[in-house]
Amino acid sequence: MFDLSPRPANSAPAAPDFPWPGGKKCALFPAFDVDAESVWLGADPQNARRLITRSYGGYEARVGIPKILETLRRHEVKATFFVTGWSIDAHPATCEAILADGHEIAHHGYLHLRPDTADEATLVDEMDRAIEAMKRVLGIVPAGYRAPWGETCPEQMELLKSRGIRYSSSFRDDIRPYRHVLPSGPGPIEIPVNYSFDDWSYGLTHRTSPRAMFGREEVLSIWRDEFDQTREWGGVTTMVMHPQVTGRPMRIRILDQFLEHVRQYDDVWIARGVDVADHYEASEAAQGKA
């Protein structure tokens, strides 16, 4: 039975107008979803035998992530990488390289399964196996989470809270961070996503789901315009990039030129997800809301 009652899907109040650190006007949250081969396995277990299909994801560790790290290093940008637990187990050296450059690694499920289609046992397994992989392989505990396939459910939101996840970056319903309100009380902070920055929509086509690919100038113009207006509104521009897309030769130029565009302003706070969460919590505490 589905609850179709007329009420907002999100019961959180409007995002508070906390000032950005250092008198900055807006924020940029550069974030990458490291799915590797797990996105293809999670979509269809039969892809385990389809080596060429899996090679789309394998590109991340072999080429995509090293090139992205090089680009971020050149622009002196620190980012968040939402990594599946499967990818950590399969590509530990690549994940260690991400951390070595000062970037954050956050939770993205284990096998990139959709939370809204999973039963309770699968939800718990996806959550806990990924946390265990992060502790065992990388020696870290994740602060943040991004929903695989860009979808979640009420049970998953409560699970994030119970596992101590401080922030989520999945919802599309604001331009400033806010705190979720769950049936059990205050939930994680949300750093909302701008879907215009999901590179998968523009740059990946596959024989089983063919679609047109967008050129550099088309994507760059969208990114620039969305960022410029979000800056005027004083919001956060949250990106959803995938190394198996943005790590490709032409597409990494889009990221490079976009960061050049952002860097022309001196009023942009470029931050990892954990930094945004730290700032939000400090702002709450300053207003006596902690």
Rank of each mutant, 00 (worst) to 15 (best):
P183K: 12
L204G: 00
G203Y: 02
Y195F: 09
P192C: 11
Y195R: 09
Q257T: 07
H242Q: 13
Q229I: 11
P188I: 15
R253E: 15
D173H: 02
Y195A: 01
H242F: 05
V245E: 09
G203A: 03
G203D: 07
L182A: 05
I254M: 07
L259R: 05
F227K: 02
V181I: 15
H180L: 15
P249M: 11
L259N: 09
P249H: 08
I191C: 01
W223T: 08
P188A: 15
P243L: 03
P243S: 05
S184V: 08
E226A: 06
T246H: 03
L259W: 11
I252E: 08
S201E: 12
R224M: 09
P249K: 11
F227N: 03
E190R: 00
I189T: 11
T208N: 10
Y202P: 00
P177T: 13
E232W: 04
G187R: 14
L204Q: 07
M239H: 08
T246C: 04
I252Q: 02
L220W: 12
E232Y: 03
V245H: 07
Y202I: 01
V181Q: 13
S201W: 08
I175H: 13
W233L: 09
R248D: 04
V181Y: 10
F214I: 09
F197K: 00
E218P: 01
T230K: 04
V219Y: 09
R207P: 01
W223Q: 07
E260T: 15
G247R: 03
E217Y: 12
E190G: 00
R176M: 02
R224I: 11
M213Q: 07
I222W: 08
H242D: 04
V193G: 03
I254V: 15
I189E: 01
W233V: 00
R216K: 14
V240D: 06
L255R: 09
F214P: 01
I191G: 05
D225W: 12
V240G: 03
G185N: 08
F227Q: 04
D256Q: 06
E218S: 01
H206V: 14
Q257V: 07
E226P: 01
E260P: 04
I175L: 05
E260R: 12
L204Y: 10
T230W: 05
